[in-house]
């Protein structure tokens, strides 16, 4: 099992596409964050706690890591290597578990690198302005939620990749559903029924996990996490059963 995991990780680190997306997922948010931090000092006063600003890039990071998850599956189909993968390890559950663990490992490491960089740059920039960087209030929970969100969405991406088999289709789904389609579907539901269905939009609930404060009309952290996980679980199940059963 460990050998299959090693092989899957190696596959992900030896293609340019994954490296580029991973680079975007880590470097782009750092650049955005540092710029935000520099301009956040309006008249010498920080508008909001540093970690809140870090968390604001979480949805972007999570979606890009979702794309990395997609590629863990679709690169194999587009390049034909899936046949060799399954010939080398006919026990498909093993390959599936290895792919999930690979995706999770990449998501966690990328998030950790990102957080360390952003926090270090916070310390440097804030110190230069004689401000102390410290974790306050819900900061700890926000950081944990950041890891949670990127991990869940990367597995969401992997599952869509296994379902679609084609990169463009799965990447569209992973990017367009949270940013456009989900809002439209739940907006329509709300308009038709007159109730506020936005509250149940799964990926939006996921994005809420990383906010410092929870509004009154929003779900609690636990409820949001459950909604997100329930939604993603459907795709995880579909992806796993298709992958382990269908002809390769």
């Amino acid at each position: 099992m460990l050998s299959v995991l090693r092989s899957e990780l190696f596959k992900m680190t030896t293609t340019r596409a994954t490296k580029v997306i991973l680079g975007f997922a880590v470097v782009l948010p750092i650049v955005i964050y540092v710029l935000t931090l520099i301009f956040a000092f309006d008249g010498g006063v920080m508008e909001s706690p540093a970690v809140v600003n870090i968390a604001s890039v979480a949805p972007l990071v999570a979606l890009l890591l979702g794309v990395v998850g997609v590629m863990c599956a679709t690169q194999e189909y587009s390049q034909g290597t899936i046949r060799i993968t399954l010939v080398a390890t006919p026990h498909r559950v093993r390959v599936y578990v290895a792919k999930v663990l690979t995706t999770l490992t990449i998501a966690v490491v990328a998030t950790a690198v990102l957080l360390v960089f952003t926090m270090l740059s916070s310390v440097v920039i804030l110190n230069a302005r004689d401000v102390q960087f410290e974790l306050i209030g819900n900061d700890g929970r926000v950081v944990i939620s950041f890891f949670f969100l990127t991990a869940v969405l990367s597995v969401f991406g992997l599952s869509l990749g296994l379902i679609f088999k084609s990169g463009p289709g799965a990447i569209s789904a992973v990017l367009l559903w949270p940013t456009i389609a989900e809002g439209m579907v739940f907006g329509l539901l709300s308009a038709v029924t007159g109730d506020n269905y936005f509250r149940w939009a799964p990926i939006q609930n996921g994005f809420q996990l990383v906010s410092e404060y929870i509004m009154e009309d929003q779900n609690s952290w636990t409820v949001s996490a459950l909604i997100l996980c329930g939604f993603v679980a459907v795709f995880v199940f579909a992806g796993a059963s298709l992958f382990t059963k269908r002809d390769a």
């Binding site: 293609t15 390049q79 034909g80 290597t81 060799i84």
Partner: peptide, 8 residues
């Protein structure tokens, strides 16, 4: 053809 074109 079952090989990633970008890998050595």
């Amino acid at each position: 053809g079952d090989a990633h074109k970008g890998r050595s």
